[in-house]
């Protein structure tokens, strides 16, 4: 606090001192969270990076094997299948979830009657037990007795998809449930973001003769940019790491049609006790996440500029 009082004094401090002061204050804000984070999360994560170059199996020593894991990875067709499936899931899940949750947030930000109820309802999928979610959706997708195919049949579609029981349709099915489940979560974040847009901007835009679409395009979207950026990063990383949803819906099947990287990591580690190899798959997943995030950062910065 003494430092800031000094800052307030009329004479401008030397640049070096100001820098040091800023650093100290900055650190004082960050440290309470960062210390806990560094000790409890960063250290094990660094250990993981080391382990990815070893043959660690939890019980024994971790012998350094250099790039052996990496070479194995390149020739591991299951890994490539999992990678392809993960990218498929992410590539569809992220844009669809973001678009729909934004639309939902806009809808629920209005003064429709009963909007409070709908807001609560929209959040329910995220809260409902995932076991129940999987059970109900799997029943809906049931090829013979499920309501979805019964509807399709009633609509005259002769050969409705097999959904979770078919290798072609299992991933779309999982994505549908993934979007449905995550909608409420991101809707809430968009809703919070919408509140930060000053109402005056809308009034000004209206006065300038902007229509609904133009207001959305020129006021809402730019105003939401920090939120959108946050959501796109979190949603992308979350999709690349998707795990429990797949596990309860299809367990990666039929065959390997919905096997994703996180699940493959779990299989290699906890089921087959090849933690060294599992660690190197994690590092690859990590690198993918980081590069996608970096791209998002750059795009975001360019838009802001």
């Amino acid at each position: 606090m003494a430092l800031t009082k000094e800052l307030r004094a009329a004479r401008p401090p030397r640049p070096g001192a100001l820098r040091r002061r800023n650093t100290l204050i900055g650190l004082s804000f960050v440290l309470p969270n960062f210390i806990g984070f560094a000790v409890l999360t960063l250290v094990p994560v660094l250990a993981l990076f080391y382990l990815s170059f070893t043959d660690w199996n939890v019980f024994g020593r971790a012998n350094w094997t250099g790039t052996a894991n990496l070479e194995r990875l390149l020739n591991d067709s299951s890994f490539w299948t999992a990678l392809r499936n993960t990218l498929y899931y992410t590539g569809v899940h992220v844009p669809v979830t973001m678009a729909l949750s934004l639309a939902l947030a806009l809808l629920l930000n209005t003064r429709l009657r009963g909007v409070r109820f709908f807001r609560t309802a929209a959040f329910f999928p995220y809260v409902t037990s995932i076991v129940a979610v999987a059970a109900v959706w799997n029943m809906m997708f049931s090829p013979d007795s499920g309501p979805i195919n019964q509807l399709l049949a009633a609509a005259g579609i002769a050969d409705p998809p097999g959904w979770t029981t078919s290798t072609d349709w299992s991933m779309p099915s999982v994505i549908i449930v993934g979007v449905w489940r995550d909608l409420g979560f991101y809707m809430l974040l968009f809703l919070a973001g919408l509140q930060t847009i000053p109402r005056e901007l809308y009034e000004a835009a209206t006065i300038d003769g902007a229509g609904a679409w133009q207001r959305f395009r020129h006021v809402t979207l730019p105003g939401l940019r920090p939120t959108t950026f946050f959501i796109s990063v979190i949603c992308t990383i979350g999709s690349l790491k998707v795990f429990d949803l797949i596990l309860v819906m299809t367990q990666g099947g039929p065959g390997q049609s919905t096997l994703v990287l996180s699940q493959y990591i779990y299989q290699k580690g906890f089921v087959q006790n090849q933690f060294g190899y599992a660690s190197s798959i994690s590092v690859v997943l990590f690198l993918i996440c980081v590069s996608v995030t970096l791209v998002q950062f750059l795009v975001n910065r360019r838009r802001n500029a």
Partner: peptide, 16 residues
């Protein structure tokens, strides 16, 4: 901070 979000938890669960 951001980078650690990108590491799947089940991978570093045991070291942690």
């Amino acid at each position: 901070y951001l980078a650690t979000i990108a590491v799947p938890w089940q991978a570093y669960m045991i070291p942690q």
